[in-house]
Design a protein around this nucleic acid. Structure first.
Lengths: 212, 212
DNA sequence: GCGATGTTTGACCGGATGGTCAGGATCACG
DNA sequence: CGTGATCCTGACCATCCGGTCAAACATCGC
């Protein structure tokens, strides 16, 4: 008999094959639905349908809608911040930053749903992420801003406000995921895939900004 | 007696003082609530409370929640596109584009709720704006892209992909409105107003990108 | 002051939605 | 094959939410 309110859990034992498959399907479906409609706009019925499960079955694996959302957000944070973590203080400055831009643009191309999930969250005031943003993210940005400042002080890149440079990279790359619909509608059917041109454009932009 | 389902309307006569005051209060309140929670996340009760009216009273002035939202979106479109319209083909190229960037950044500073309203809409796939985007907006961008291309062909700015240049301006300036929370949390309390520094950063960025 | 027009509201409705529960089906393992 | 743990579901509940309506209330021109 399960304790009141407890989840499968299995008392710290390894998770069942079925458990892994279903929680995976749920998170995949939830990503699809949350990123397209926002937290409030998504319904458990939609998620259940996409996942191919019944609604009560969702709630067998997760205690609430809120919990699914939070699990998604925190679970995807690493994927989202890894490119910045990979910025190497020992590398060649301009190449390092261009590589960061490229990796971030690849995330927008390959994981647009994840980008929109975060965008939705931050747009609504980041109620569930403000802790991480003011903590881990801020610390990471501080660290890398120091690296960029050092490069600028050494004359290896042009002087630039390091934090706003990072904001610029976020803004420019995430725009192609979050505003994908707008980008495609404005470009029209003649340019069905904006990403190659976007890559060239951003490379040129940051090269001219940073090359000493 | 009013016809079934008809709104105040007043048969094409001038609107009452009360009508103007209340529709104004409703749209102001709706902007506040829609921009903070998205369409689905906002409720008529919240809007009514912020507007200082009762829910049925809202629905006396607007036929539905949808109608309030649509009225907001279309009513604010001009404000949003005017800066790009003002780009003058006869002006000095770099100065014109920098002025556009400045005006757009001022919109982010002075009308962040409007920016978030549009961001929410486009994020969800622009269900209510795809027509305008593929029509008016695309036409406007085409026109101005032509201007920028001509400037580049004449050697008055560096060669640049004109449409992606416009996307870059949108992305960079709107980021400071849409992701305001994140920007402030990352910068910390030491830099309580990001806009002055953002202005300098973006001016430098586009100057270096465009100056021949 | 009076009728007509315009404004406001309490009470209510129907459907959607997050979540619960008791019990049945299925699986893992000895 | 039996038994305990895990997995799944139909039925149900409480609440929220967009929207309606009849009737009360205010305003205004005369």
């Amino acid at each position: 008999m399960r304790a009141r309110g407890a989840r499968p859990v299995n008392e710290a034992r390894t998770r069942t094959r079925i458990q892994r498959r279903n929680t995976g399907a749920i998170l995949e479906a939830a990503l699809e639905v949350f990123s397209a409609h926002g937290f409030r706009g998504a319904t458990l019925d939609q998620i259940a349908e996409v996942a191919g499960l019944s609604k009560p079955n969702l709630l067998y694996y997760f205690p609430s809608k809120e919990a699914i959302h939070l699990e998604l957000l925190t679970g995807l944070l690493d994927l989202w911040l890894d490119p910045l973590r990979a910025l190497d203080p020992a590398g060649e400055p301009v190449a390092e930053i261009l590589a960061y831009v490229r990796r971030k643009l690849e995330l927008s191309r390959d994981f647009p749903r994840e980008s929109r999930l975060f965008a939705n969250e931050v747009l609504q005031g980041a109620p569930r992420l403000s802790g991480v943003i003011a903590g881990d993210l801020r610390a990471l940005v501080d660290e890398k801003a120091g690296v960029i400042s050092a490069w600028a002080a050494a004359g290896r890149i042009r002087p630039v406000h390091p934090r706003h440079l990072i904001f610029s990279i976020w803004a420019l790359t995430q725009h192609y995921a979050d505003f994908d619909v707008q980008v495609r509608l404005v470009l029209g059917p003649a340019e069905p895939d904006p990403f190659p041109e976007a890559g060239r454009h951003l490379t040129a932009l940051f090269t001219r900004l940073l090359a000493p």
